[in-house]
Simulated scan of single mutants.
Amino acid sequence: MQFNQLMIDEFELLAKFPRSSKMQGIKIHSDANENLINAAQRLFDKGIIDSPDGGYLTDLGLDLIEHVSVLHSALSC
């Protein structure tokens, strides 16, 4: 198993979502980094976020953010 740059971009975007509340989302502005914009579109296409420019995490996204948090925590040691 290997992570490619597209996956890493998606991980990084997921990590930007607030974890303190399911009612908070993010907005990706049109002048944002192209990798961030493309990652948001891919996450939307996969059903992980509810809008191609960020929005809120779907149920799948909420599950994944927990895994991203665990990975980040484990690899930060």
Rank of each mutant, 00 (worst) to 15 (best):
M1N: 08
Q2C: 01
Q2H: 08
N4E: 09
N4W: 05
N4M: 03
Q5E: 14
M7P: 00
I8N: 01
I8T: 07
D9C: 01
D9N: 14
D9A: 11
D9S: 06
E10I: 04
E10C: 13
E10M: 15
E10S: 08
F11T: 03
E12G: 03
E12A: 03
L13M: 07
L13Y: 09
L14A: 07
L14M: 15
A15L: 10
A15F: 13
A15I: 06
F17D: 03
F17P: 07
F17K: 02
P18L: 06
R19S: 12
R19I: 14
R19F: 06
R19Y: 06
R19M: 12
K22C: 01
K22L: 05
K22D: 14
M23R: 13
Q24E: 15
Q24P: 00
Q24N: 13
G25L: 06
G25H: 05
G25P: 04
I26M: 05
I26K: 01
I26L: 06
I26E: 05
K27Q: 14
I28E: 04
H29P: 00
H29Q: 14
A32M: 05
N33L: 10
E34T: 08
N35Y: 02
L36Y: 04
L36P: 00
L36N: 00
L36E: 12
L36S: 01
I37H: 04
N38I: 05
N38S: 12
N38H: 10
N38Q: 14
N38L: 12
A39H: 04
A40G: 14
Q41K: 15
R42T: 07
R42K: 14
F44Y: 15
F44M: 01
F44L: 04
D45L: 12
D45I: 06
K46Q: 15
K46H: 10
G47F: 08
G47L: 10
I48P: 02
I48H: 02
I49T: 12
S51Y: 11
S51R: 12
S51F: 12
P52L: 10
P52C: 09
D53Y: 09
D53N: 13
D53L: 04
G54F: 06
G54R: 02
G55V: 07
G55R: 02
G55P: 07
Y56D: 04
L57N: 07
L57V: 05
T58C: 07
T58I: 08
T58P: 08
D59K: 02
D59E: 07
D59C: 00
D59Y: 00
L60A: 09
L60D: 08
G61C: 03
L62E: 13
L62W: 09
D63V: 07
L64T: 09
I65L: 04
I65D: 02
E66R: 12
E66Y: 06
E66D: 12
H67I: 15
H67R: 10
V68K: 02
V68Y: 02
V68P: 03
S69V: 01
S69F: 10
S69N: 10
S69R: 10
S69T: 15
V70K: 14
V70T: 14
V70R: 14
L71K: 00
L71P: 00
H72W: 03
S73I: 06
S73Q: 12
A74K: 11
L75C: 10
L75A: 09
L75P: 00
S76I: 05
C77S: 08
